[in-house]
Design a protein around this nucleic acid. Sequence first.
RNA 1: GGGUGAUUAGCUCAGUUGGUUAGAGCGUCACAUUGACAUUGUGAAGGUCACUGGUUCGAAUCCAGUAUCACCCACCA
Length: 885
Amino acid sequence: MDTHQISKTYNAQEWEDKLYAKWEENGLFQPDTCQSQKRYSNILPPPNANGELHIGHISGYTVMDIFGRFERMKGKKTLLLPGKDHAGIQTQVVFEKKLRAEKNLTRRDLGREKFYDAVYAFCTERANYMRAQEKKIGLSADWSREKFTLDPEVSRRVLETFVQMYKDGIIYRGKRIINWCPRCATALSDIEVIRTETAGKLYFIKYPIKNSGQFVTVATTRPETMLGDTAVAVHPDDTRYTDLIGKTLILPLQNREIPIIADRRIDSTFGTGAVKITPAHDPLDWEIGKDHSLDALQVIDEKASISSLGGMYAGLSVKDARKKILYDLARLGLLEKENDHAINLSQCERCKTTIEPLVSEQWFINVDAPKYSLKKKSIEALRSNAIAFHPENMRDQMIHWLDNLHDWCISRQIWWGHRIPVWYCLAYDKGQCQLKCKDPIVSVSRPSLCPICGSEDLKQDEDTLDTWFSSGQWPYTALGYPESDDSKIFYPTDTMIMGRDLLFFWASRMLMFGLYRTRETPFRHLYFTGLVRDKEGQKMSKSQGNGIDPLAMIEKYGADALRMALVIGGTPGNDIRMYDEKIEAARNFTNKLWNIGRYVNATIIKNQVSEVPANPEPKNPADHWILSRLQEVNGEVTRLLENYQPSLAGEKLRDFTWGEFADWYVEIHKITKNDKVLCYVFEILLKLWHPFMPFVTEAVYQTFHPDAKTFLMIENWPDNLALEINSADANRFQSVIGIIQKIRATRAFYKINPTQQLSLSIKEGVREWTLIRDNNEIFQRLARVSDIHVINLTDPAPEKSLRISFGVLDVYIKLEGVIDFKAEQERLGKEKKEKEKYISSLKTKLENENFIERAKPDIVQAEQMKLEEACKQLSDLEQHIALLR
RNA sequence: GGGUGAUUAGCUCAGUUGGUUAGAGCGUCACAUUGACAUUGUGAAGGUCACUGGUUCGAAUCCAGUAUCACCCACCA
């Protein structure tokens, strides 16, 4: 391809879709064509198929794709399996809103079946859109294997687990206090409830003691629940109340008799030390009620209004009832006082409605069942380091969470999701069956008959499963465990990458289910990304409008730039800030790479280099230097990627590519040509960059191989480069760079016109003096030196010259009449002081017997060398200062 | 009430087995159009690594405590 056909700047728009389509057409995302025995497997987290991708998704995909492409290039049979989640409650909430806004209908207007179909269609549409977004970022996932959590095959396996767990006594049905969302009209697990500290009040209510004219005052933040009180509890050791234990109170407003009981769970320092007990509407009260055989009176119903048990308040909303109750209590003189009190308001995670704790019949997972303890097995696996965590500390957080895990409510009274695979025989209900077929029939598919009485009159449980019940099984359900070939090859998986907010919701569930169902941890490495925040560090949210639209950024800067901005400068588990300037800087780098490509391309054409050489054949010191650096960087980058540190790997690569290859080697190449080395290094760099920036690297690669049917994407990862490098030459060249930098700095310091040519002198025979002589042309071009004089070693230093020293080598710049020597003396004085300070610190260290004794010998030796060098430099400096006088 | 993370240059952040005279990008300032790139190049300024102790020959790095910020968890009514 002709260089002038290649645009001056990289135009991402022009390449991205085209290249992605080519990769896909050629089946490069599918592992099947790779015959390797080694494999790399990553089941991608399925985003909720009810909206669009946000920058956080893109951040995760970038990391997943970097590792995926890296492993693929290393020759492994690589599978990135994509999918979408049906996201039970969330999707139902989203869709119900849409239904109301667009057609003013509720789900009940449609009916269960029609509603389900409509939501399914909606999710399919959203999934299509989101898939297009995933492709835009360059995700190298195998779309032919894409799964949805409600796919029949996936569902079947989810339900199988339910049945198995029921048989093992892990899943049970029971009446317990649960979190109820009145808006969603469903039960929620503890983790789906969010708590926000809100200003509230603590009300002190006087409960009369029967036949005494005295009172016990209780404190509560939710006075309306008093309607369902069935006791007042105090701590048994609380001397204030010892005499009252066992006495009877008259519950105001309801005029019901309730006992005073003693329980150790009461904190006598809070409020009055006497607590009203409402077993039906408070988790702790429920426990206490159970132990004391108290009645649980449900006074708040599922619509958050007062039930018929609430006497004269029946039918009122909770809010109205509270007002009226307080008013009535005050009127009766029973409201002692009210204090300001911060309360933790419980809200539904999805719709923010205030949660009402109520007693309800639900399905639960006993996380610590006798036959199999999900909790204990998981903790065991974590303690034995069966999973590598990135970052490490997340492991302890998960252990701690599992340690405190209570039973998990898995039934939801919604329509969108996996329906619970349980049937009830209606013959019993109707009194047609005298047999004991009251027990639920638990089976993956609908049984034709009741196994006890043979009736055909069966009815399925109305509830659906918690979304996390199915997504917790994702790694093996998506792979078709246990019978599929894929699950045999790709399970257990290598890597799982997710936002750190999913540690408890998802990672811990996958571990529990994976161990239970497959006896293996579902993944070997668990990597957490941080949250993507805005420039000010605020959480991005729709309502605040501070979100970054990934598609807009891709359009503006290109997918590679966005990927780079998301990955560089981040650490696993730590949040990152995202904003235009950052992406712009990354875009500039993609352009830099593109332009190095243009230069290399021009070289190839001009010099008719046909192929990138297998052996670069280094000739001059610059060649040895760049190749030795390449070898180092290649090793470091590989190691960093293997250690799950993509950010550091990217930084290393960027610094080398820009700061060493482009700024030095390419410039040198304009002077001393070795096309083979130039092409060789660049081609390796393209490969190393490919996982980070798949598009621009492939684009450049394609301009090199316009006719070939090869792709950078499936090139081999460079590893263990066997290069014949002369390390002495490499080091020598490093010195050349150092000297040129010093000359440039001096030039800038004295504001010497860059166009002014300088004259150098160098003493013949001084160590390394040939560095200058042999690289004459490089100095001329890169340091703007017109001539170099070689003088005798014994000659006095040239007068009216500046001296530049680099290590053991001195270079004199003739500057007669150009600069102010007084200023130079001052500058050197400053330098001398710094040097002296440095030397004294080294001396102190080396004079310390303990250091000599205890530090490793090579460290001591290194310090010794530093001191020698510094002393030499200091004495030279002093000589030079004297010369200037 | 418990737990986690953060605190390093004006800003955003690196710094993984403790051994550099503490780094990068952006921004700032000065200069520059040399065969790719102004989405560029060259150079400079800028930091007692939050604080206080401890361990160590040696601490930004390990330990303890303190402060500030952020997040997570928890049945204190």
